[in-house]
Design a protein around this nucleic acid. Structure first.
Lengths: 150, 150
DNA sequence: TATGAAAAAAGACAGGG
DNA sequence: CCCTGTCTTTTTTCATA
């Protein structure tokens, strides 16, 4: 059940997923057990699928972050999917509409490593590589979701 | 300092950011306070930039998730950036290399709403819209990061 | 730095409205 | 569906190696 209170709980969790139930309770004017119970239900229903950590790629020695769009050649989709499984540099992968299209986000240690991967992709697809210069927005939920919340 | 223990802490946090320090300690064979201290430092150094919640867009009534690539017309970049600020449906936005290129991920309530946004983009850019069919991979860190961990 | 113990806080679980 | 208390676990702080 997604009422205003759950919307505000999700908003707070989006900002800091390690916040305590007591602190969440203060923000939504509910007791800690009431908040815990709501979150438990959201998890059980699959509305909340997990909690993850956000990291700084530069500080972890993975400064080359790129988005690669692959238009996989006909009849090579199966092979391409197998190739994807062998590339540990991938952090996001989307299967999209369009001509056998994949959008892949990678974080690599160097341009040389990125190039190595792109060569492999090149055997099975037309690739379009975009280096990420900056990330103005990155959040779990769009602001539209909170528009109706008080 | 990114040693093997911190790598394993980050790996565990990636899987579940709400895990307790005691449980983390078990996994990396360290006491809870030792783990807490390491995490505090990672946060302070900015290696860990935050903790977020993962949600199911379908269950939240935002079933239309798309990636839009925008090649902004010359001299319209400033206007385009201003337009972006007015669109609350955006969940990710990347400024990339290429001809004034942006890659934008949106979650909207309906195709009609997506179309409405694309029309606005169309005034200032050439757009290429890809509907996300599935998301085989979505994680904070690439597997390469853990390759050297014991 | 890492550890270990004690104080403080948070979470889980009752009974009751 | 929520609140308040109690009990347990976890977190934090501090002293020590």
């Amino acid at each position: 059940m997604i009422d205003n209170i759950n919307r505000r709980i999700l908003k707070a969790l989006q900002k800091n997923a390690r916040i305590s139930y007591a602190e969440l309770g203060k923000q939504v004017h509910l007791s800690a057990p009431a908040v815990a119970e709501r979150i438990r239900k959201l998890e059980q229903e699959g509305v909340i699928s997990g909690y993850c950590v956000s990291v700084d790629m530069d500080k972890l020695g993975l400064p080359v972050v790129a988005i690669v769009q692959c238009k996989v050649f006909r009849a090579m989709e199966r092979q391409f999917k197998e190739l994807l499984l062998t590339i540990p540099d991938i952090i996001e992968c989307y299967n999209t509409t369009g001509e056998q299209a994949f959008v892949i986000k990678m974080a690599t240690a160097s341009m040389a490593r990125l190039d190595e991967i792109l060569e492999q992709f090149g055997d099975m697809s037309d690739t379009n590589t975009m280096m990420i210069l900056s990330t103005p927005v990155h959040r779990a939920l769009p602001d539209t979701f909170f528009d109706s919340a008080v």
